[in-house]
Design a protein around this nucleic acid. Sequence first.
DNA 1: CTCATATTGAAAATGGTTTTCAATATCATA
DNA 2: TATGATATTGAAAACCATTTTCAATATGAG
Lengths: 159, 159
Amino acid sequence: MKKKASEHLMAYLEGQGLKSTRQRDEILDVFTSLGRHVSVEELYEKVRKAHPHIGYATVYRTMKLLTDAGLAEERRFEDGFTRYEYTSSAAHHDHLICTRCGEILEFENERIEELQADVARKNHFQVQSHKLEIYGLCGACQRKKSRMDSGKTNGKMTE
Amino acid sequence: MKKKASEHLMAYLEGQGLKSTRQRDEILDVFTSLGRHVSVEELYEKVRKAHPHIGYATVYRTMKLLTDAGLAEERRFEDGFTRYEYTSSAAHHDHLICTRCGEILEFENERIEELQADVARKNHFQVQSHKLEIYGLCGACQRKKSRMDSGKTNGKMTE
DNA sequence: CTCATATTGAAAATGGTTTTCAATATCATA
DNA sequence: TATGATATTGAAAACCATTTTCAATATGAG
């Protein structure tokens, strides 16, 4: 799996007349070892731990490259950070995002996908990509929230 | 309708202990007169035409205020600009966005909404908001594109 | 091994948005 | 209507994630 990714990158670089570098290999290596939805900053932290010589700009550049190579997917949720997902799972999936703790859950729903295709078709639209994001409170945060609320006097707060 | 919006704003300001100002009224006035999905820049252009004294920062601040007041909704598509929609249509709707010409089409699909609610429920998620965006080519751009492509040799392209 | 050129790292630039701050406007109260 | 506490404004500076610049360096074809 790890092997496959670096081979994939190698092939892409060769095809594009680009060069294979230590930095690219190292970043890919760290990237594939991390979980999903890694922000560039998180990734940079981890990369730097193993390879202190690598600069911020290189991480940005490499993630763009991996995206072009089909090894990563860019995600932009509402928090202003670009995140990357390793492209390994075949199926398209969407996200549930907790607005309180930031947790990101994934889901797939074939029926929704079909309905989206229907909508596109009706509008003579040729789909390139789509994003479905549901923002709200995860179970844990709902419980925390209601615990907090019950401590308060009443609703109205000036600040 | 126009009347209603300014009354709504007035009530909101009063409720929050904020002040009614000429600028806020003027911006709201221009905003409600424009179509959907107005970017801040577009809005500022129009506002300035009628009221040259109003600054960029005030437009930004006022749109945030209108959003808090429930008179506007913020939209962030993938082009990096914040857009605002006047909150008049009752129903939630989603967007088809042409990646070539930037056209934005709206659609509603009750069945998709239901399925989203199901997904949330299954994940013990309390929904606050959601966004569904379909990116692709609108009918017109598909035609333009294929016209361009037909000049080319065949499928495979290096770049 | 050489050389053309792709890549890197650090720092500066970018660009949409937000904040700062002194001047001004609003509005409750007298 | 005048007063004063405070919210608001406009211009410019700051923010901040991301991109670009540029001189130094690494890569890989020949």
